[in-house]
């Protein structure tokens, strides 16, 4: 602080992630941003705000009136007010604003018109923000048994499958689910079995273990990581423990780090979802190239079609589709190239 300081210096280059109330989705975003460092976002750079799409809708109406969609909606400003942020937030300080919500057809507040308005208005993450609706829920990114997964193209869930916890159970312990949970599993081991209670240290050692890519010197690498951090007894235990844990992992077998492997997995998930979205949208194109199909995607059309097929309370269905992973191709489709 010097004599010329008259206010808190402006901080920009921020990111806002508005998600469903509970932040269970953080694992996915953590992996996306770690596996695609080109996007230049780390979880530390993100302000996360949990809410529900209809609550958010009401906040917007309260701030801008019923015809909010004719206005220049500033979501960081609204969120700042909700959380009593010490300084007034402004969208001009945010590089990206992502809104990630579940379709939640079974929500008593479900309103086609409202979400269609939201979907139409929030189309640019670098400007007013971009809405990614996931069908039926964000967990749909886990709904794979292998890659390629030919079943995914026709995969639907009945509208009668409610509440959401039933869908979560459906994808629980799927192939992708176990991959995504792997860092959390390591963190749990470090915390509970090796008494590393400082969360920063825990993350540090976890990241070190996830960086290992060579099965040939696995033992040496684990030893190097924990050499100074653990007692001799714990060190010997960790060598056996993590050796066993890591040695049969697919990424290690393929001489890849965990995040390199996850980059490939996410690519697969994204490409499967692009093709699926294209099918839902009935894109008439001769091409099967995902990048050309992606150019033709329209999240509004997809929402309308989902609204259409899920109308019947008994026979209706929802196409399983994850759109929030389109954060990657929205940033740059070239990131999907291997």
């Amino acid at each position: 602080m010097n004599d010329n300081t008259y206010e808190i210096p402006r901080q920009r280059h921020k990111n806002l992630l508005i998600v469903e109330g509970k932040h269970e989705e953080n694992d996915l975003f953590h992996i996306i941003f770690h596996a695609f460092p080109e996007i230049e976002i780390t979880m530390e750079d993100i302000m996360i705000y949990g809410t529900n799409i209809y609550d958010l809708y009401n906040y917007i109406v309260r701030e801008y009136g019923d015809y909010w969609y004719e206005d220049d909606v500033d979501l960081p400003f609204i969120v700042g007010k909700k959380i009593d942020h010490p300084i007034t937030l402004n969208k001009k300080d945010f590089i990206n604003v992502y809104l990630v919500f579940d379709y939640e057809h079974h929500d008593p507040k479900f309103c086609e018109q409202k979400i269609e308005h939201m979907q139409r208005y929030f189309y640019d993450s670098t400007d007013m923000g971009k809405l990614y609706l996931n069908y039926p829920m964000i967990e749909s990114y886990k709904h794979f048994t292998c890659f390629p997964d030919n079943n995914f193209e026709n995969l639907t869930v009945d509208v009668t499958l409610k509440p959401g916890s039933k869908y979560k159970d459906l994808v629980h312990d799927s192939y992708v689910d176990s991959l995504v949970k792997f860092p959390r599993k390591i963190m749990g081991l470090l915390y509970n079995h090796y008494n590393i209670r400082d969360i920063v240290d825990c993350k540090f050692y976890c990241d070190q273990l996830l960086e290992i890519s060579n099965p040939d010197d696995l033992h040496e690498n684990i030893k190097r990581i924990f050499n100074k951090a653990l007692s001799e007894e714990d060190l010997n235990k960790s060598l056996k423990h993590f050796n066993a844990l890591l040695s049969d992992k697919e990424h290690i077998k393929n001489y890849m780090s965990y995040y390199e492997h996850m980059r490939n997995i996410l690519r697969e998930i994204i490409v499967h979802n692009i093709k699926k979205a294209s099918k839902i949208q009935s894109t008439y194109s001769n091409t099967s190239d995902y990048d050309e199909l992606y150019e033709l995607l329209d999240l509004n059309d997809i929402l309308k079609e989902q609204n259409n097929v899920s109308k019947d309370v008994l026979l209706g269905y929802i196409w399983v589709l994850n759109t929030c992973i389109f954060i990657v191709p929205d940033y740059n489709i070239k990131l999907l190239q291997s």
């Binding site: 920009r12 280059h13 921020k14 080109e38 996007i39 230049e40 969208k91 001009k92 300080d93 945010f94 590089i95 640019d124 670098t126 400007d127 940033y331 740059n332 489709i333 070239k334």
Partner: peptide, 21 residues
């Protein structure tokens, strides 16, 4: 930036918010 810049992007807003910081 490594972001693919498109015609619809609001470059002014991106500049101000620090995309090219």
């Amino acid at each position: 930036t490594q972001r693919e810049l498109r015609e619809g992007h609001n470059l002014e807003k991106m500049y101000i918010s620090g995309e090219f910081e």
